[in-house]
Design a protein around this nucleic acid. Structure first.
Length: 195
DNA sequence: GTACAGATTGAG
DNA sequence: TCAATCTGTACT
């Protein structure tokens, strides 16, 4: 059973969406080919109270406006001048909340190639490069787009398989927010980003 | 206008 | 351990 995730899936509490995205498939159509990967690691950013969120205190800039869209839209931006970060907006319009996709497990894959493919998608910057994502996807609607969407292929991740840990690279937000366990990944999965 | 640092990565 | 290199923000 394969079905595309609808608006309803994304318009729910951000922490639930972040956990439920584990085991779903991110699908990208590129030059008539399908690139897909199972989502194995996510992080939740919950503005306006979350100090690590770009929408802290409802801050709005040209770059982060997509974070305020209703759940199911792409919020993609450049960090460190070279890497794209793929986020998906959540909840209702006007709230700066989103889920960062941190790692995928590529679908293609012969078993003996696993170690080689690992470095393709085991990090937020790498998976965007792998899926050929860039600014042209800014604000794309995942429930309607013909070139990127998310599918439920019937895989169910048990609660006992989900690990919750502090988010990565946000020490600037202070101990309180940096220690929140809003990073989720599938226990034991090889493609989860390192650290 | 200038200075600075960030939701990262890979090389040394 | 550090450089690569773009963008928003906080200054001058």
């Amino acid at each position: 059973m394969i079905k595309r995730l609808t608006r309803k899936f994304f318009v729910r509490p951000t922490l639930e969406v972040a956990k439920d995205l584990l085991g779903k498939f991110l699908v990208r159509k590129y030059k008539n080919k399908i690139l897909a990967g199972k989502i194995v690691e996510t992080e939740a950013y919950i503005g306006p109270q979350d100090k690590a969120s770009h929408g802290y205190k409802m801050k709005r800039t040209k770059r982060n406006r997509a974070e305020y869209l209703i759940g199911g839209h792409v919020y993609i931006y450049l960090v460190y001048g070279m890497y794209w970060q793929l986020n998906i907006s959540t909840e209702k319009r006007g709230l700066p909340r989103c889920v960062l996709i941190r790692a995928l497990e590529p679908v293609i894959i012969e078993e003996n190639q696993k170690s080689k493919n690992k470095k393709l998608t085991s990090g937020p910057g790498k998976l965007c490069r792998y899926l050929k994502l860039d600014k042209s996807f800014y604000g794309e609607d995942l429930t309607k787009s013909k070139r990127i969407w998310i599918e439920d292929r019937g895989i169910k991740i048990k609660k006992s398989e989900i690990v919750a840990r502090p988010r990565i690279g946000i020490d600037y937000a202070g101990k309180y927010w940096a220690n929140k366990k809003w990073r989720f990944y599938i226990k034991g999965n090889l493609f989860v980003s390192k650290k």
